Simulated assay, not measured.
Amino acid sequence: MDKIRDISIIEAVLHVLDTGADEPILNSYMMELTEERYKFILSHIERVLKDENLKYASFKAKNTIVKEVGQDYLNGRIDLNIASKEIVKGLFEIMKDNESISSCDLLVVSFNTEYGPMLGILKMDYVKQYTHQIDIVDSNVGIGLIPITTGLSASKKVQKAAFIRPIRDDQEYDLLVFDKKPVIDTDGINYFLDNFLGCSLIENDRDATRHFMNRVELWTRSNCKDEAVKAERIRTSVKRILRNNEDINIYDIAEQVILPYEPEVKKDFIAYFQECNLEKFQVDKEYLEKKLSNLKIKVSSDIELSITADAYADINNFEIKDNGDGSITMMIKYIENYVEK
């Protein structure tokens, strides 16, 4: 996946979509990009682009408002205000037909990257906040709290976003999509991907690497209960193989991870990943290193450990000892000082 790091915001506009109203509130003016607003928008864009749930996608053959209007804007045929209003109207119609979709502000932003221009659409859900309410009765002051649900937060993560590129021949993808909490109806339709954007997701190296690591953990938990030695060997071996290889083949991994005298286990291991469509893939090294840089180990409901990959591999800091009965002992060594958090 393209790692977008160079972002330069050009212009932005904000509209209000309240499902309790008959129409969206459409902004007539571009946002004045003060330093504070610029940083607010940039922080949300960067956070989404770095999230492991960001996906490649391509537009379907059928045109949607987002596809048509997005391309009209990116190719200089209309301005951002006109484009954003059409996008908002399209989303609002979908929202009015689906009670499970929350009201929001829709931020539409144009920005340049090292890979060319993009049109960003960020659904900014409201944050429930509280403010004080002052009542004065017979010279007596009473102060209470009342909820407000129209605030936007710099810290709250965006749940849905799309970053659209100009469509060109032979390009790998048309847009990047982020849908943290999909809303899917009884017919299996995802309103954001299917109805609003009209796109199909594309599997990439990062997705395959993430899915493989998650599936290894699930298989290990299921097949190595009360066998901590075996589980530790499998987890450590898989990490080593991922770090040392660009291309992954599940048959080669099975040969290295599963012991020779366990042919049935090897067969089950291979079959499991065949069902997951993870027989072969390329490792996303950047995602892998980020994922492995800090390990979180849950020993029991009462004990959890967070440790860096370097410390885990350093025998002077941390050691795992085989107790000879299938269990292990984890040792944190040579502690000169510690603090409580």
Rank of each mutant, 00 (worst) to 15 (best):
A309M: 04
V257K: 00
L175D: 01
V109L: 04
T236P: 00
E289N: 14
S155N: 10
M30K: 15
I248S: 07
D247K: 14
A57K: 01
V177K: 01
I136F: 01
A57L: 05
R165D: 06
N316M: 12
G188Q: 03
E275H: 10
V69C: 09
D207G: 03
T209L: 09
L218M: 12
L292K: 05
I164G: 07
I258H: 02
Y56E: 12
I41R: 01
D18M: 06
Y191R: 06
I335C: 05
P166M: 05
S43R: 12
G116F: 01
L197T: 03
E262F: 04
G324W: 00
T236S: 14
I167F: 01
V183A: 08
I315R: 14
I303W: 02
N112H: 04
K156L: 11
L107W: 03
K3H: 11
N204R: 06
K96W: 05
D325M: 06
L17T: 12
L295D: 04
I332S: 05
S237A: 13
Y287P: 07
I101K: 05
N214A: 13
N195I: 10
F111G: 09
T329F: 00
V177H: 03
I164D: 03
E279W: 00
K39W: 00
A311R: 09
I253D: 01
M31N: 12
E264A: 09
L54R: 10
D174I: 09
A154E: 12
L107M: 11
V109W: 01
D169T: 11
E36G: 05
D22Q: 13
K55G: 09
R235A: 10
Q159K: 15
S327K: 10
Q71A: 07
D179A: 08
F178Q: 11
R47K: 14
L305C: 09
N53W: 04
V137H: 08
Y287G: 03
I241E: 08
Y312F: 15
E11P: 04
K96I: 12
S327T: 15
R77A: 12
N245L: 08
K266T: 12
R5G: 14
Y73L: 12
E68S: 15
Q256M: 13
Y29E: 15
I41N: 09
I270E: 11
D284G: 07
Y126S: 12
L193F: 00
L295P: 00
K341R: 11
I328N: 11
L152G: 03
D322Y: 02
S200I: 10
T220F: 06
Q171T: 07
G116I: 02
R47F: 06
L175H: 04
E36I: 14
K55T: 09
T131F: 11
K89T: 14
D169L: 08
C276S: 12
D6K: 14
G324F: 02
N190C: 07
C199T: 08
N337M: 03
F192D: 07
A12P: 02
M95G: 05
D284S: 10
P147Q: 14
V69L: 10
S301M: 06
S110K: 07
L259K: 14
Q274P: 00
A161E: 03
N214V: 05
S58H: 03
D22W: 00
D325W: 01
S300F: 02
T150I: 08
S306M: 04
N27M: 09
G142K: 13
T131K: 13
K239G: 07
I332K: 06
K157D: 13
M124H: 10
T19N: 13
K39G: 06
Y56H: 12
K89S: 14
I297P: 00
R206H: 03
E35L: 11
